[in-house]
């Protein structure tokens, strides 16, 4: 028996007695979320390569970063302003206020805390989500409503992606867009706010016939909600890769294969 000289754990950023590589968890979040932010900003600024038909190709696709396309021909929109900037605030706001992403970026970008039982900055002025700007997280349900509108447009784009000059057709891009919208739908309908609105706010599920119906819906949404993190990531990848595919088709880097 001997004294080790190790004192009780003090406060301080990154201070911990954990032995595992706790930082491994936040590095992919920084890379993927940061990388997605940079890529999405670049694509919005690029102001082009969102519809292969504008570049002489037949594939009837529209990049999800530009959907719904508002004044793509710049009749009233200034040339310097990309139509993507008119719409990206909606999906970006939905993800930024999402209960899952909040966990991810508070840990990875704000280090508040960087990981469980790992010291953060420990500032006494911490206000969490009670003061600006984070009090705006309380508007998540409104971004959910907005996300439903975007989802409707993206489903419409998928339907149009089957329409090749008035005939039914399927290209590789059609399948990619279909997979993307399924991922986005799963992410949207597994939302915590939706789970609350659909039935979570009720105290008594058995009290009325309507409440019993809502209980069924709440259970279904709860089952989806258990995988919200998974859907958050796969939909992030799917939307980015769908845009990348459309861009590569537009630029002629790859040729879109028509399967049917």
């Amino acid at each position: 028996m001997s004294e080790t000289g190790l004192p009780i754990l003090q406060n301080g950023l990154g201070r911990t007695q954990r032995r595992d590589a706790w930082w491994v968890e936040i590095i992919p979040v920084v890379i993927v979320l940061g990388g997605f932010g940079v890529y999405a900003t670049f694509r919005a600024l690029e102001n082009g390569f969102y519809d292969p038909r504008l570049y002489g190709f037949v594939s009837p696709y529209l990049s999800p970063f530009y959907s719904p396309l508002i004044d793509g021909q710049h009749h009233w929109l200034p040339q310097w302003l990309s139509p993507a900037f008119l719409i990206l605030g909606g999906p970006a706001g939905f993800r930024a206020t999402c209960y899952y992403y909040r966990k991810a970026y508070y840990r990875a970008f704000f280090l508040d805390p960087p990981a469980c039982a790992v010291g953060d900055r420990g500032h006494k002025s911490y206000k969490g989500e009670t003061a600006f700007p984070f009090i705006l997280q309380n508007l998540h349900r409104y971004f959910f409503y907005l996300a439903l509108v975007f989802l409707a447009f993206l489903w419409y784009d998928v339907v149009l992606a089957f329409n090749w000059h008035g005939h039914f057709g399927i290209g590789v891009g059609t399948i990619i867009m279909l997979i993307n919208i399924i991922c986005l739908s799963l992410y949207t309908f597994s939302c915590h706010s939706f789970r609350h609105l659909v039935g979570g706010k009720l105290d008594c599920f058995s009290c009325t016939a309507v409440n019993r119906q809502r209980h069924g819906a709440w259970k279904d949404v709860s089952a989806l909600n258990g995988r919200h993190m998974l859907f958050a990531w796969i939909s992030l990848f799917s939307v980015g890769l769908t845009d990348l595919y459309v861009r590569l088709v537009c630029t002629g880097v790859i040729t879109d294969l028509k399967i049917l």
Binding site: R102, Y106, D112, C116, A117, K127, G128, E129, T130
Partner: peptide, 8 residues
């Protein structure tokens, strides 16, 4: 509101 959902 002080909770920032980090799930620890």
């Amino acid at each position: 509101g002080l909770c920032n959902i980090t799930k620890c």
